[in-house]
């Protein structure tokens, strides 16, 4: 299936990616066109699956076998909160801080 630019841009927005980030305006369009062509090629390859007869086949989302059951409801210490907070790009006291949400 050929992928048009609108679909590529919409998909990028869903993924919070800017496909022309840091590119000069004159280079941006070329980069987008190239990406759309590339995506079309790859998704075109994916389209071969439509020819596979999967009538009545259950999807297999994971090959896990005899997995572990749920755990008991008992508190247990994990990572130290301060170790986690220390990785924050920006914090205020014990909070993670981000720009204000409108």
């Amino acid at each position: 299936m050929p992928i048009d630019l609108t679909t590529v841009l919409h998909t990028a927005e869903l993924a919070r990616l800017d496909l022309t980030y840091g590119l000069a305006p004159d280079k941006a369009q070329a980069a987008l066109d190239k990406l759309a062509a590339e995506m079309s090629g790859i998704i075109g390859h994916f389209d071969q699956l439509s020819a596979v007869d999967t009538e009545g086949v259950e999807p297999l989302y994971s090959p896990m076998l005899e997995p572990l059951g749920p755990r008991e409801d008992c508190p247990r210490a994990g990572s130290a909160p301060e170790d986690l907070l220390s990785q924050a790009p920006e914090r205020l006291g014990h909070f993670f801080a981000v720009p204000k949400i409108l």
Binding site: A15, L35, M39, I43, F46, L49, T54, P59
Partner: peptide
């Protein structure tokens, strides 16, 4: 990484999920 995120986001997105993600999972079983 950006390319794969883009491809994967597409395969899960509304209108494409059945044709790509779900179909691929069926082929996986085969």
């Amino acid at each position: 990484v950006r390319r794969r995120i883009l491809l994967g986001t597409f395969a899960l997105s509304s209108g494409y999920y059945d044709a790509y993600f779900k179909k691929a999972a069926k082929v996986r079983r085969l």
